[in-house]
Computed example of a mutant assay.
Amino acid sequence: MKQFKFPTARMLIALALVGMAWGSGPALAQQRDADQPIEVEADQLDLDDTAGTAVYTGDVDIRRGTMQLTGNRVEIRRNQAGELTRAIATGERAYIEQQPDPDEPVVRGWGRTIIYHVAERRVELIDRAELHQRGDTFDGGYLEYFLDRRVVQARAESEGVEGRQRIRMTLQPER
């Protein structure tokens, strides 16, 4: 089995945040944010080279440019090749945001769990999920947002979610 040297925590967070771009113009948002410094605040970091994980706990706040990811716990996972595969934020109200373009509003998402699948450029918002995009809002037990296509899929129920959280939407008229 091929061994890999796990990158420093700074490199790990840099890769995570570079890969997390919202909405249209992902290349623009990624480049603009990639040019910014990374700021991480947490009470604790546990880095595991063998498992390919970095786990931040205690009021975690990660920022880079227009990107922000917060939660009580944020775990970043990498594969054997050292590539970022997933970022998972959990907490009473985990949060993710980014402004895709200077002329567009910030896209915001909340949930008790937020899972960002890097290769698929897909975000799952789970349990008390909420997404705000261009004045439109989506709420429910489970929301899935495909970043490049701006596709939202929503369900009232999801595994591990207590009770039914009906889907609610508010869609603004086209201008």
Rank of each mutant, 00 (worst) to 15 (best):
149 R>K: 09
116 Y>W: 15
48 D>R: 12
146 F>P: 00
167 I>Y: 08
48 D>K: 10
25 G>V: 05
23 G>P: 04
166 R>C: 08
56 Y>S: 02
94 A>H: 07
93 R>K: 15
102 P>T: 08
167 I>V: 15
94 A>K: 00
27 A>N: 12
83 E>N: 10
63 R>N: 10
123 V>A: 14
97 E>P: 03
17 L>Q: 14
23 G>I: 03
144 E>F: 08
101 D>Q: 13
124 E>V: 01
155 R>M: 12
128 R>H: 13
152 V>S: 06
32 R>T: 09
139 D>E: 14
142 Y>W: 09
19 G>A: 11
102 P>R: 11
107 V>C: 06
125 L>K: 06
118 V>R: 09
173 P>H: 14
101 D>V: 02
52 G>V: 04
60 V>F: 02
165 Q>K: 07
33 D>V: 08
147 L>A: 12
143 L>C: 02
160 G>W: 02
132 H>P: 00
119 A>Y: 09
41 E>V: 14
11 M>Y: 15
107 V>S: 10
48 D>A: 13
135 G>W: 05
72 N>Y: 00
114 I>L: 14
154 A>W: 07
53 T>P: 00
167 I>A: 03
111 G>V: 05
46 D>L: 09
96 I>L: 13
18 V>R: 12
103 D>I: 08
38 I>A: 04
102 P>M: 06
87 A>N: 06
43 D>F: 01
4 F>R: 13
149 R>A: 07
158 S>A: 14
170 T>A: 11
52 G>I: 04
84 L>T: 11
48 D>S: 09
131 L>E: 01
125 L>H: 11
101 D>P: 03
145 Y>W: 10
125 L>R: 05
127 D>H: 11
84 L>F: 11
157 E>Q: 15
109 G>K: 06
171 L>P: 05
154 A>Q: 03
153 Q>L: 10
49 D>G: 06
69 L>K: 00
68 Q>M: 11
21 A>H: 11
16 A>S: 15
160 G>D: 04
90 T>A: 01
110 W>F: 13
143 L>F: 08
96 I>K: 08
117 H>F: 15
97 E>R: 13
102 P>K: 04
149 R>H: 07
147 L>C: 11
1 M>F: 12
60 V>R: 01
44 Q>A: 10
106 V>W: 01
133 Q>Y: 08
152 V>P: 01
73 R>S: 00
42 A>K: 00
125 L>Y: 12
156 A>K: 02
36 Q>R: 10
12 L>S: 10
32 R>D: 13
164 R>Y: 11
14 A>H: 13
42 A>M: 01
51 A>Q: 15
